[in-house]
């Protein structure tokens, strides 16, 4: 052990650097809740005093609640579809030897390396050329497209730690493929499924670039926030909402990351 230690010996300089880096990551974000409690319509220093009136204002903002509701629905549906598609894809890729597997995975992962504006524009052209109206459904479709690669990546890593023998044992003992999936496979990969759902949910919930092109008259929350950023008088209310979302997403992300890291071995049924 001591042999390893001289390579891994603690470095004070790096530690300070890491703290600084975390500061760079967090401090800009933390200005949002700070100004949401500031008793001044303008988002600027000096601070004027403590108030909760922006939160009161936020609770009475009907269009904002409508936008929040739209985003929630879009995120739930697109995350569910993307996770289901990711589940099929990840299972197929990890369980079976498929000829041409690499190019297929490349196509599925492509949205990760194509600028969103290009996919947004392409979908916009397709939908209008087909004569469909832009709506929350078109936004949902776009969000499924960008979420599937993340769902696949999350679930593939889950399936890779999966003991195939358990499924085989279930089949050998006479279980149908469906009941094997339902009673053996699903419980084992469930933390991965949940993590994938939450990841896809956060991606969709926050996505603006494509939604801006593809939403019709019903705005999602980021589109609503975008429209508010131009009106200084509405900003404190947006900051209040942003702070609340911040707290909720911290909790959700912590939970989903914890799920992701939750070891496969720990969840194996007691045999």
């Amino acid at each position: 052990m001591t042999e390893v230690a001289y390579i891994d010996r603690p470095s004070r300089a790096l530690y300070f650097y890491a703290i600084l880096y975390l500061g760079f990551l967090y401090i800009p974000v933390l200005f949002l809740p700070m100004f949401s409690f500031n008793d001044n319509i303008y988002i600027a220093f000096p601070l004027k005093g403590f108030t909760t009136k922006w939160y009161m204002e936020m609770f009475n903002n009907q269009p904002m609640w409508a936008a929040l509701n739209n985003s929630f629905n879009v995120a739930c549906v697109s995350a569910a579809i993307a996770t289901l598609l990711g589940l099929f894809g990840a299972k197929a890729v990890t369980r079976y030897r498929i000829p041409g597997e690499k190019p297929i995975i490349f196509v599925i992962m492509l949205p990760m390396v194509v600028p969103y504006i290009i996919m947004g524009v392409a979908l916009l052209i397709l939908i209008t050329q087909l004569g469909f109206d832009l709506s929350l459904y078109t936004v949902t479709m776009a969000h499924v497209l960008i979420s599937v690669p993340f769902a696949m990546a999350t679930l593939i890593s889950r399936f890779e730690g999966f003991d195939q023998a358990l499924e085989e044992a279930s089949t050998d003992l006479g279980a149908s493929p469906l009941s094997t999936f339902w009673r053996v496979t699903l419980p084992l990969v469930f933390p991965g499924v949940l993590a994938s759902f939450l990841l896809c949910f956060t991606i969709s919930f926050d996505e603006f670039i494509m939604a801006y092109f593809l939403a019709g008259t019903d705005p999602t929350l980021p589109i609503f926030i975008w429209s508010q950023l131009r009106f200084p008088l509405r900003l404190p209310g947006v900051l209040a909402l942003g702070s609340l979302i911040l707290v909720v997403s911290f909790v959700v992300v912590f939970f989903s990351q914890w799920l992701r890291s939750y070891r496969v071995e720990k969840t194996q049924p007691g045999i």
Partner: peptide, 17 residues
Amino acid sequence: KGFTLLSPTLLVMGLTM
């Protein structure tokens, strides 16, 4: 079997991309 399992995902990605 692999292709069958993959097909929904591939189909959706193909259609929307």
